[in-house]
Design a protein around this nucleic acid. Structure first.
Lengths: 270, 270
DNA sequence: AGAGCTTGTTCCAAATAATGGAACAACATG
DNA sequence: CATGTTGTTCCATTATTTGGAACAAGCTCT
């Protein structure tokens, strides 16, 4: 089996790759879906590092299943079946439904945008949002994924991970400078996380986007299998660090309220 | 290989199932995702008809890949990674972006809700929506899938399919009565489609939901590989059949405008 | 509590599908 | 028209999936 040379720091100890064929195909799908522009066969070939024949079959299968579309100019695009899957995933999600009223309340208390995000691998996936101007639609970031190391939600989530899982997660991070304040090393990030753990809430000091600050608190189930977060975000000119400090309490209380609500409504262990 | 007894009217001529392992796994994923309530292992076992060992591994892989989540009570739920895929699929979609202004204009002309939907297998997947009250969020149906045979968009899309593909599509339909007006047979549906083809637009005469009517027109690329539709929908008390007739022209013109716009912006063949 | 039932998990030889190199075809490009 | 690039097909080899059966963990009912 071929191994990616770049960024693969995993121990070489008999990693069966876990999910077999599915994992490989999803990796191809993710490549196409997360690409900035539609990709041609050769582009994907270069990015995936798979042999031509193999990749060709994988793409054919993905197209046949509706997860990708092949346009007439041979470019591959995400397929509409992905929307169907997500619609169900979102509209029936109980966690989101339970958290909803708490987001709303937090928005009313602060007047700024409130986010609900879930930790998945090394990213935070935005699951819900309440914001002032009701121009919100699906662009609203729902489904958008941001790195854990430069977002309030991400750091809040990391702060409650069991040590071992935290290590493996941080080990997989590929640090990338988004702003002057972005953490660029595991050491720097871990120092920040120590503070977060003590306080119970995390800040984003313009680490992902300039002029955007946020304060976030972690949400988790009993076994820390499920880790998420809630945050209040605003523009730096309006939201000072003092303001964020002042909101930290309500954010944290909202997070705790959600944890309790989930336990009551979905039974112990959640 | 086992075959579903119910609703499987496909010819038994050497169907290699096409997408191999991926198809089987996605079929399991779809079962879980489209279920009304979270399913336990045995529920899925019964629905999928796969052997225990096989299904167990498939589910493990899906969970490991983040497409499913297994809760503490052993129920399976759609995973949040699905949201990430869809976010990209939606936000980068060029067809949607091109059609957007036309939907907006159609909404301004009619004052009622406008939908954009894409044909995928035997379903219409809603891709965009413009409606009066700006309470729209992701609940807005984006990603929702409805059967082709009882929606205006579905019938509009079917009406432009090449005869052969129309036959296979209709052959796969499992008719289900949603209202008193729902088509329940291929014959009845085909008769309707003949009318649609003559007029160039389709009606939904409360065939999917009581008190909901709609008029829709087809959109397609040069080779009919990509088939979609645009529609105006409203409550029966406000939107009479005469009103729909009156709007048919603008709807059809909007559809044609989108077809032209796509050809210009994405090049010939689209 | 214990017997009997259901439900979830693990194991492994056999069957099957994925792999990947190489040859082929279709397009561009100079 | 020659040449490089890009997309597609083929097939023996290899690895993964398959699925039966045995095992373990929960329930339920007397």
């Amino acid at each position: 089996m071929k191994r990616d040379e770049a960024g693969d720091t995993r121990p070489a100890t008999a990693e069966t790759s876990g999910t077999g064929t599915l994992g490989k195909v999803l990796s191809v799908l993710e490549t196409v879906v997360t690409a900035e522009a539609p990709l041609r066969f050769s582009d994907i070939l270069a990015l995936s590092g798979q042999p031509r024949g193999t990749l060709h079959r994988q793409l054919s299968h993905l197209v046949e299943e509706g997860l990708l579309i092949q346009r007439r100019d041979l470019c591959y695009e995400p397929g509409f079946r992905l929307l169907k899957f997500a619609y169900r995933a979102w509209s029936k999600n109980q966690f989101r439904a339970i958290a909803g009223p708490h987001l709303q309340r937090l928005h009313e208390e602060t007047g700024e945008t409130v986010h609900l995000g879930v930790l998945r691998d090394t990213e935070i996936i935005y699951v819900d949002k309440v914001e002032s101007r009701q121009t919100v639609r699906m662009e609203s970031q729902i489904g958008n994924a941001s790195p854990v190391y430069c977002t309030g939600l991400g750091k809040a989530a990391l702060s409650v991970l069991p040590p071992e899982r935290l290590e493996t997660t941080i080990g997989r991070l590929a640090f990338h400078r988004f702003t002057a304040n972005t953490h660029l090393s595991a050491i720097s990030l871990k120092r920040d996380l120590d503070d977060v753990r003590l306080r119970g809430y995390a800040f984003d000091r313009e680490e992902h986007e300039t002029d955007i600050r946020c304060v976030a608190a972690p949400i988790h189930d009993a076994g820390f299998d499920f880790v998420a977060g809630i945050s209040v975000t605003g523009p730096a000119y309006r939201v000072t660090m003092e303001q964020l400090e002042a909101w930290a309490g309500v954010v944290r209380r909202a997070a705790i309220a959600i944890i309790e609500d989930v336990q009551i409504r979905l039974g112990p262990g959640h």
